[in-house]
Nucleic acid binder design. Structure first.
Length: 284
DNA sequence: AAATGAACCTGTTTGC
DNA sequence: TGCAAACAGGTTCATT
């Protein structure tokens, strides 16, 4: 479900409600999500205080203060396609709802529930250095909103790949956080056909694409993300960026720039949307 | 090596 | 109306 703007929005919401709070209880209702829940997660988290909530790629990271015998651990959550992290001002004694896999209750009675119908999401718990060295994090590419992601970086990656540019920018090993929606939206803004072989892109086109990715992600964060089906903020409120889509989900509707009907194709099993007029495929 | 497809799950929408 | 197929924000593994 969530791409970078949605995860960032959830992260910001949770930060304001969890930093400084102490975990009183962790209830694991269903251990068989994508990866099994961390061993002894409940007791390892018990009595820890949340010192920070951060985002890395599409993960939400809770920094949990040290206890006797260790220097603190980080709880990482990936939301998969349908995962939600919902804050409840009063959680104690509430009965879990369907797909509420983990409930974290704070000492003040508030809490956070991890709900995920499809169970593609998962949790990891480890000291920060171990988490970052794990197979999940070690392979992650650059953050798209950071300076390291620039036209030069993308061009260097593109030169070595003949894969369609849409797939390349969705590859988390190259740049993180860009998923199926924002890939189509960014390519439209950069006026690049999603099937363009990456190694055909010139430096200037890569720079334009980088700018488009940064722009669309930033705007989506401003709007609280995009709510199509499942995504909600930690408050339960929806996002609004779906009203600003130029191409995603608009098959047959007119392009905002030239009125040509938007096309839908399937790449690697995922729907791609583009304007055939504004995003021509140049075949060399 | 690189690229497509299937698989993992459940829920909702679409089409006959 | 009913049922089946298609589809969904992600990632990984197996097969060409």
């Amino acid at each position: 479900m969530p791409e970078l703007p949605e995860v960032e929005t959830v992260c910001r919401g949770l930060r304001s409600h969890s930093v400084g709070k102490t975990i009183a209880a962790v209830q694991c209702n269903r251990p068989d999500i994508r990866f099994p829940l961390p061993e002894n997660m409940a007791e390892r988290l018990h009595n820890r205080t949340i010192t920070a909530v951060e985002r890395r790629a599409k993960y939400v990271l809770w920094y949990c203060a040290a206890k006797e015998g260790d220097s603190g651990e980080v709880l990482a959550t990936h939301l998969g396609m349908t995962g939600r992290l919902l804050y409840h001002a009063v959680l104690a004694d509430a009965a879990p709802k369907k797909h509420d896999h983990v409930c974290v209750t704070f000492a003040d009675g508030s809490g956070i529930v991890f709900n995920d119908a499809r169970r593609f999401g998962y949790m990891l718990l480890a000291p920060e250095h171990a988490l970052l060295a794990s197979s999940h994090f070690a392979v992650l590419g650059v953050e798209p909103l950071e300076a390291a992601f620039d036209g030069h970086y993308l061009h260097a990656k593109c030169k070595r790949s003949s894969s369609p540019i849409k797939l390349l920018i969705m590859n988390q090993k190259i740049v993180v956080g860009v998923g199926n929606i924002y890939a189509s939206e960014a390519l439209y803004r950069a006026q690049l056909h999603p099937e363009t072989p990456a190694n055909q892109l010139k430096q200037a086109q890569c720079s334009a694409l980088v700018a488009a990715i940064k722009q669309v992600l930033a705007e989506a964060i401003e709007s609280g993300g995009s709510t199509l089906r499942d995504y909600v903020r930690s408050s339960g409120d929806v996002g609004y960026f779906q009203h600003h889509f130029a191409v995603y989900g608009r098959e047959g509707e007119p392009c905002h720039m030239c009125t040509t009907p938007i096309r839908r194709i399937v790449q690697s099993g995922r729907a791609s949307f583009y304007c055939g007029q504004c995003q021509p495929l140049h075949v060399v």
